[in-house]
Nucleic acid binder design. Structure first.
Length: 300
DNA sequence: TTGATCCTTCTCCCTCTATT
DNA sequence: AATAGAGGGAGAAGGATCAA
């Protein structure tokens, strides 16, 4: 039953695009007087409903709305198609729905201006590499520029510093103006949309990195993060690769006694309270209650 | 110089699926 | 349609290292 109902919903939701696909098939093979069956003697009788679920909704005045009538017609037409044709429509409806979702997410994701903070070297390369690049390999040009960069005069260095300061200040100013033109809640929603886009468009090379905004509420730190942070800042792991240190810290963490562990769990609980409070203050709504998911399923 | 990666555990939060 | 659980990806911390 579900297999039949799903395409029906999709076909109905997909609206105009499906109507376009379904209509020619139906129009060519079926007469407009589908609701009547011709008897042997030539008279017609009202035909029974094609299938359950095709009743046309009526508006308050008891009249069939244009949209409802269209939808009902589309549903009826859909059922008269072969399974292959139905599958094609369903597939098209799915693709259309996915495309529409991507479009909505992209709109939500916002388009912040790039805040490029360049260095003296970056500016120097930008200013000089183009003229030299003709014909010579880039690596050679970069080597030449690096040599020249080392030997710049004080005056040239000062000029370069000035250029860097101006360019970076301008970039930052434009970015901040754009950022503060949006509320933290909008930036949060944009980052959520970006997360979904990263997942959906992973194979297309689209990055959609999160927008950095100091106003956003920092996520609550779990007991592990707090323990890890404390151990790392102790200095015991100076010079040790983060990966190797993390392994060692994990061993320490798992070896903690119940009372030792509780200390970090309490700190984590406090941070969760901080997260909830800031969420309310900054975004103007309560933090979603994810503890609900740990409750047992309702009895059937 | 920047950004990504490494590597761990835990939590958040989204998507998908199942159920009512 | 609404709701809830399962599953899974991301991000939270740290600094060294590598590629571009």
């Amino acid at each position: 039953m579900l297999a039949l109902r799903l395409p029906l919903r999709l076909a109905a939701r997909a609206g105009p695009s499906n109507a376009r696909l379904a209509t020619p098939v139906v129009a060519s093979s079926l007469s407009a007087s589908r609701s009547y069956r011709t008897k042997a003697d030539g008279s017609t009788t009202p035909r029974k409903k094609e299938a359950a679920g095709t009743t046309v909704p009526k508006n308050k005045a008891g009249l069939i709305s244009k949209t409802a009538a269209k939808e009902a017609a589309a549903k009826k037409a859909y059922k008269l198609l072969s399974p292959e044709e139905q599958a094609a429509i369903s597939e098209q409806a799915k693709e259309a729905k996915a495309k529409e979702q991507i479009k909505l997410l992209k709109a939500k994701a916002l388009s912040p201006p790039k805040n490029r903070q360049l260095t003296n070297w970056a500016i120097y390369v930008r200013e000089n590499a183009k003229d030299r690049a003709q014909g010579s390999p880039v690596t050679t040009v970069i080597k030449q520029l690096a040599e020249e960069f080392k030997n710049l005069s004080t005056r040239e260095k000062e000029h370069l510093n000035h250029q860097v300061n101006e360019a970076n200040a301008k970039s930052l100013r434009e970015y901040e103006e754009w950022l503060h033109g949006h509320t933290p809640a909008e930036i949060l929603a944009a980052n959520n949309a970006r997360l979904q886009l990263r997942n959906k468009l992973a194979d297309t090379g689209n990055k959609y990195m999160p927008i950095k905004d100091d106003r956003l509420v920092k996520r609550a730190r779990g007991s592990w993060i707090i323990f890890h942070s404390e151990r790392f800042s102790s200095g015991d792991f100076r010079g040790i690769k983060a990966g190797d240190a993390a392994k060692d810290i994990a061993v320490e963490f798992n070896a903690l006694s119940a009372s030792e562990r509780k200390k970090y769990e309490d700190l984590a609980a406090k941070d969760l309270e901080r997260y909830a409070r800031e969420y309310r203050e900054i975004y103007g709504v309560e933090k979603p209650d994810w503890s609900k998911k740990t409750k047992s399923a309702p009895s059937t």
